[in-house]
Design a protein around this nucleic acid. Sequence first.
DNA 1: AAAACGGGGGC
DNA 2: GCCCCAGTTTT
Length: 215
Amino acid sequence: MDKIVKVLQKLKNEYGTVPWNWHTRQNPFKVLIATIMSQRTRDPQTDEASKALFERFPTPEHLASAPLEEIEKLIKGVNYYKTKAVRIKEVSSIIVEKFGGRVPQDMKTLMSLPGVGRKTANCVLVYGFHKSALPVDTHVHRISNRLGWVRTKTPEETEKELKCVVPTEWIPFINDLLVKHGQTVCKPIKPSCNICVVKKFCKYNEATSQNYTQS
DNA sequence: AAAACGGGGGC
DNA sequence: GCCCCAGTTTT
């Protein structure tokens, strides 16, 4: 079996398959809004806030005409909530007025929306429309490099290289699994390599553990 | 390419 | 109290 698949299988065994923001998936508009909310924000906060928001304003039409203050209040708790409230309303209006209430299905149009960058657009494509898209955030970028799967400077490079080395059927799981691993074990600073289930496949661990195993 | 944005939770 | 964070936009 391929080495990368082995690692992904181990991570899947460790962390399970329940995706973040599961209640929004298969609804492209909800995926879009919830993903904007999730930027630089921890999971549980976003999850609760997005549920509250969609209960009150379930569609682009509702959000486009919602009072800004009410949106702010409902999503308070997520990072940048004031800026995001403005963008959520803007995005909803654009979708209603320019796209007939439908979320665009291509990278370029998605990224033209306010508050939507490459990572968010890819989330919409893969979780909303089941396309073969790979959202790369700081965790995916960092861990892919530590493991030695890629050698890249930017998230976009990582996205392209990962798509070449990871089997298609695993693409939709990469983000969830590596983010979970990155939050709990493979942290940006002082990663807990001693408890890592994939350390024997990891270049970073190989390089850093040498200092201790010698002598 | 680097800084700003901007706020709650963990240590 | 300080530091960090499922990014995007602006300088």
